[in-house]
Amino acid sequence: MKTRLIIVLSVLATVTVFIILGFNSTHQNNDEGENVITRCITPVGILNDKGEIQRSNSRWGNSYAGDEWFQDDIYNYFIDKSNHFIEAIYLEAELLGKGILLDSEDRVLQFFQMNFEDKLRGDITAFCNKSGNNDSIYEIVETVDNIETGTKASIIINEEGYLASAVFLLADYEAFEEMDLDLDKVITAQQAMTIVCEEIQENEVPEEGFMRVPEGKYDARLKTFKGVVFWEITFSSVIYDKSGTSFETQFICRVEATTGTVLEIARSL
């Protein structure tokens, strides 16, 4: 309990600082109806008192940014070797509705900033969707010159405004800088879409069939994950076989941003 209180108070104290400072943010809705928040950030330290580290976290292997965790009465906290806070997950079912209060978009962004402390070097953009349970699911990414660095988080806030689960991924900034990537070196979203459609037509559509994308509509977002920069293209399609029978499928595809290599084609169930 003592550890929990310290952490919660630490969070609240830092949140208070942010409220006093007041940050300007811009809000807009993108084509998918997501609430998008973009702002410049100022790093702030947090979680200096993290309590006793329990044991090494080997659960996630290489896919995970951190390797140690500690816990209090409410959450498991996962941290990396630099004490950056990368995940908080609930321990107990009966504690729903308690824990870290993140009842506004600003507080969620502050939570992101606090966890990455002095690591951040770019701008932050947040994408928010609602689950069926009306949880707010924030995907928060850091960008430099409009390209994601790979530092990002997924933070889920329950309907009452309390943290339900969070995961934080820290970029390999050295590798990111070595890429020396700017938008001039990146293929366009339309080029990525064309590449994906050709790939699907060749490998996913029945022989003598074809695919139609209604109104040619698609969503595209330039993303970075595990050091790879790629276009994520999402669109609905109707696929016809040679008899004219059709079925609808949604695709989520990834295309490497400079070479145009198709990394993944995921189709809906």
Binding site: W60, I89, S131, S154, I156, A164, V167, L169, K223, F225
Partner: peptide, 24 residues
Amino acid sequence: YISAVNALNELYAYSGGYYGCNSY
């Protein structure tokens, strides 16, 4: 419920996306 929300973030940490599972 907690399994559902944690699973979503574990998927995100693994793949960098939600694959529609954020509509749980």
